[in-house]
């Protein structure tokens, strides 16, 4: 359970980190290390060069900008959880963070690290999927933006090259008064969820669903949006019957995983139950209309 030998680099500036990733063979960027270090200890990953980002202070922090909220990829989960900006503007993320790991792992783990690990049942990628996050990916000399919906290509496979770095996450908050809910089922609190659901819902003046987003993690090999259910619910008035339809649609997702612990049928059952539960809570909050 010791990692294979590697060379270690600790740049202070983003430009230096990008140069190292561009010039070195078989590099890997180290964020909070809460997933990468176990994978290296298991020797699932054996990078020749580890580029530690923990001293690159320009990658951490969370600030409002013209288009919404800009979160540096190295912003730690504990900082997000305590951020007034996140709690005010992104209450869905704040609620999901209650389920993310434990005190010790949140003290190190980062938003960018979670996205780059791309575990299909991790909470933060599911939240970013519901919120239509835009990711900024940089390499030496150039920058590109990509949608969260084009990010995960499959289990633990983010669409990023070895010499690239996820540097920022941009999220446009939903309007004040929207409803939100993150619910999940895990064997033990703090574990990766078996299934997790993020729901956002905004009602018009007549109480009809004006805008809705439902993302589900842990079912397929990446978090997915329940577009069929979103289309079915848009314009409707929240009710148990309507949400039950969404639950049925969720349980009919394609490519649902089976593994040694959890069968596909159980994941489908959880998808149904959790989607109904998340929508119910989100609608309740939207009806209260209390600005988030």
């Amino acid at each position: 359970m010791k990692p294979a030998a590697f060379e270690y680099h600790r740049p202070d500036r983003l430009a230096d980190a990008l140069a190292l990733l561009a010039d070195l063979p078989n590099p890997k960027a180290l964020a909070g290390g809460q997933s990468l270090m176990p994978m290296m200890n298991y020797r699932v990953l054996q990078p020749d060069h580890l580029v530690d980002l923990n001293n690159v202070s320009e990658l951490a922090g969370c600030t409002p900008d013209a288009s919404g909220v800009r979160i540096g990829a190295m912003t730690r989960q504990c900082a997000l959880k305590e951020s007034p900006l996140v709690n005010r503007s992104l209450p869905l993320m704040a609620e999901a963070l209650e389920h993310v790991g434990h005190l010790q792992t949140r003290n190190r783990g980062t938003l960018g690290g979670s996205l780059c690990h791309a575990d299909p049942s991790a909470e933060l990628p599911t939240v970013c999927t519901a919120l239509d996050a835009t990711l900024v990916v940089e390499r030496r000399g150039s920058q590109r933006k990509t949608s969260i919906h084009d990010w995960a290509m499959g289990y633990l496979m983010p669409a990023i090259e070895a010499e690239e770095l996820l540097t920022q996450i941009h999220i446009e908050p939903w309007p004040a008064g929207h409803g939100w809910s993150f619910v999940e089922f895990a064997r033990r609190h703090g574990d990766f969820a078996i299934v997790g659901v993020a729901a956002l819902l905004h009602l018009d003046a007549k109480g009809r669903i004006e805008r809705i987003a439902i993302a589900i993690g842990g079912c397929a090999d990446k978090p997915v949006r329940l577009t069929l259910a979103e289309e079915r619910l848009a314009g409707g008035t929240p009710s148990e019957a309507l949400f039950a339809e969404a639950g049925v649609l969720a349980s009919r997702l394609e490519n649902v995983l089976t593994d040694a612990y959890v069968q596909e049928s159980y994941r489908r059952h959880l998808a149904d139950v959790l989607v109904r539960r998340a929508l119910g809570r989100a609608a309740e909050r939207a009806r209260q209309g209390v600005p988030a």
Binding site: G33, Q34, D52, Q104, T105, N107
Partner: peptide
């Protein structure tokens, strides 16, 4: 466990509880 699951190796880094099996000494 040496992979961040059990918490037995918890130490404080600048006062914050962290898993020392998931950090490098150089950090």
């Amino acid at each position: 466990c040496e992979h961040g699951a059990c918490g037995a190796c918890t130490v404080q880094l600048d006062g914050a509880a962290v898993r020392s099996c998931l950090m490098l000494a150089v950090q």
